[in-house]
Every structure is written in structure tokens, then in C-alpha cells.
Design a protein around this nucleic acid. Structure first.
Lengths: 89, 89
DNA sequence: ATGTAGACTCTTGTCGACA
DNA sequence: TTGTCGACAAGAGTCTACA
């Protein structure tokens, strides 16, 4: 049951990384900004951990974006991915 | 650091319950619909567990709503809550 | 129809250190 | 600057069963 054909953590990771880099922040900057561990951000971006909603809200605050916008991107990628059943990018 | 003044799990639970009931579904209906445990849905709605993003996507699929819409509601409640610094309802 | 409990497994999330 | 490893406490998530 934990076998999701479409892996949401990977989409979240890719999305987070893209936004973080667009803002010109390092992982450490962001980690310090929102009070989470740097290695944890790495884990997320690389798709190993799926952050909780609470953590995503924290991260979005550090990135000055609205969580709903973040999830809009994730949802769009999710649908793209489920249609193509292929690459994330 | 895991001390969030504003508890997102409670907002998620309240939101899920409201949408589920608007759709006229029981917890068991929804659980069966999206392949999760019924007691788990109860846990979420009551604010004891914070579901992962993956689970929220599953639940939204069972409710025929877009995850981004779900999070839009959660975000709105979150902001209302952080302004009033009071009741969720 | 819902909340809760116990017991269990797996993952999240933190921290320090190393490539 | 980032990925990863190991260890650890805490929480997610399942299942059975009872109020």
C-alpha cells in the first residue's frame, strides 16, 4: 500500500530545489532561515524524505512563497507525470 | 523547534472532515475509496496525526477534489488562525 | 458511524561528522 | 556547498478490537 506508482517525494524535492535556487539561496541559508537541519533539506531535495505539511509550510515561509503556490506546482508536475508515465523532467 | 504555535494537523483534520461530510461520505466509505485505514482517517480528522502529502493526495482523489484546492483552504485557515491567534472555528 | 487503544513496522527529522 | 552515513527520539500508518 505504500507502493505509490507516482512518487510524490521526488516531485516535492525537485520543486523545492528549483525554487530555492531561483531565490539564490544555499541549502544552509534556507535551513537557517526556517530552523530546520541542512542535511534534512538535502534529503528532501534528493527525494529520500517526504517532508510533512508542517515542514513544507516552514520552508515556504523561508522562501517567501505561499504554500498553496508550492502545491500548485507539485500538483501540476504530478499530473504531467501521471499522463506521460515517464520522466519527471 | 518542533513546537509550532499554530497546529497545522488540526487545520488539516478539520478541513478533511468538512469536505468529507459535504460529499456525504462516511469515514469508512472514504477509507475504502482511497485504500487507507478507517481508524487512520479518524486520527487525522481529530488532529492526532498529520498525514503525509502522499496520503493527502490519496484522500483528495477519493474526494474528487484537487489537492491544490485542499491546500488553499488549509492555507486560508492557517492565516486566519495566525491573525486571530485564537480558535480554529 | 466514529473515537480510541495497543502493538507493531517504517519513515521523519535532528545532530555530528566525513567525503 | 552538497550528499550521505549512523544513531537516535518521535511520529506516521496498519490492523484488530472495544466502547
Amino acid at each position: 500500500m505504500s507502493e505509490q506508482p507516482i512518487i510524490i517525494k521526488q516531485i516535492i524535492g525537485k520543486t523545492l530545489k528549483a525554487i530555492r535556487m531561483k531565490h539564490g539561496l544555499s541549502q544552509e541559508d534556507l535551513a537557517h532561515e526556517c530552523g530546520v537541519d541542512r542535511s534534512y533539506i538535502s534529503m528532501i531535495e534528493v527525494g529520500r524524505n517526504e517532508p510533512s505539511v508542517t515542514k513544507i509550510f516552514d520552508l515556504c515561509k523561508g522562501l517567501n512563497i505561499k504554500p498553496s503556490d508550492f502545491f500548485k506546482i507539485v500538483e501540476a508536475e504530478y499530473q504531467k507525470f501521471s499522463q506521460n508515465s515517464g520522466e519527471i523532467e
